[in-house]
């Protein structure tokens, strides 16, 4: 190898280093946060997937995570309700708090935590049970309903909030897997809401849906923002622009930039965010 190419490489490397900032651009803090994350690192085995993410998530806000695939959006999202606990090789350091309480504290039990921080997945995943039992599953395991009438009310209320009640009220006993993809995803949202969470995490909830079903789910998210804090990972920048009020841009495991959605999409500060928004890489 000649000396010229070697220096070239070094220059390129430092160039990359300069690009991904150590400090997140924009204001990561909010007044009265619901969830706070401080210097969170996540490792899969030896491989670091998230590097020093500090971010506040406010009450009653919809925040969207965007960024190229593999940048760690899902990984960070899954830290927020400790879903990463189910992966053997995954290790989380730093501090994540819900209403001021560290959720990674050894004294914290994940069962009530996951009732408070619900999750909706990329692919609709209803249980192969009836529509009714799908919704009633959470309330049953957490003992939320005192009797059958109570449970019926929770089911109806959740389905109504998810805009699905009119479509399924006559066939609650039929399997949830028999619904269309969009209905299944709204069923999953209703199932998450049935345990009255404070925060709902959504990991690309529309990526398996057609445009009409997507529009319905987006409309639903819009309505839910009044009552819940919603964190949504999305691949579609239009979707982020439509549903969220704050947007966080991730790149190679780092949180590059956070800001008001409008500002991120019209006037991004960091070069990488600009490149991503203008579609220079995806």
């Amino acid at each position: 190898m000649t000396e010229a190419t070697m220096t070239n490489e070094v220059v390129e490397k430092t160039g990359v280093d300069r690009k991904v900032p150590d400090q997140t651009v924009g204001n990561v803090y909010v007044d009265e946060p619901r969830m706070t994350s401080r210097a969170v690192d996540v490792y899969y085995g030896d491989k670091q997937a998230i590097d020093g993410v500090t971010l506040d998530i406010g009450a009653q806000e919809v925040i969207s995570f965007i960024g190229p695939s593999g940048c760690g959006k899902s990984t960070f999202l899954r830290c927020l309700n400790r879903m990463n606990d189910t992966i053997d090789i995954c290790r989380v350091t730093g501090e994540i708090a819900l209403d001021g309480q560290n959720i990674y504290d050894p004294s914290i039990d994940v069962v009530p935590l996951r009732a408070r921080v619900g999750m909706v997945f990329q692919k609709p995943n209803p249980f192969p049970k009836s529509i009714y039992d799908n919704i009633a599953y959470g309330p049953r395991i957490h003992g939320l309903a005192t009797d059958k009438v109570d449970l019926d009310n929770i089911v109806e209320e959740s389905l109504t909030k998810a805009g699905l009640w009119e479509e399924v009220k006559d066939r609650l006993e039929q399997p949830g897997t028999g619904l269309s993809g969009g209905q299944q995803q709204r069923l999953c949202i209703a199932r998450a809401m049935a345990v009255s969470p404070e925060v709902i995490l959504m990991d690309e909830p529309c990526s398996a849906l057609d445009p009409i079903a997507t529009a319905k789910v987006e409309e639903l998210i819009h309505e839910l923002r009044e009552q819940y804090t919603i964190v949504i990972v999305t691949h579609s920048m239009q979707q982020a622009a439509r549903v969220s009020n704050r947007t966080a841009y991730f790149h190679l495991g780092k949180l590059v930039e956070v800001g008001e959605t409008k500002q991120i999409f019209t006037n991004p500060t960091h070069e990488l965010t600009q490149d991503y928004i203008t579609g220079r890489f995806g």
Partner: peptide, 15 residues
């Protein structure tokens, strides 16, 4: 059994 079903249950706080 698809992993997504496990995720669904764990995500709701099932042990």
């Amino acid at each position: 059994v698809p992993q997504s079903l496990r995720d669904a249950a764990y995500g709701l706080g099932a042990t």
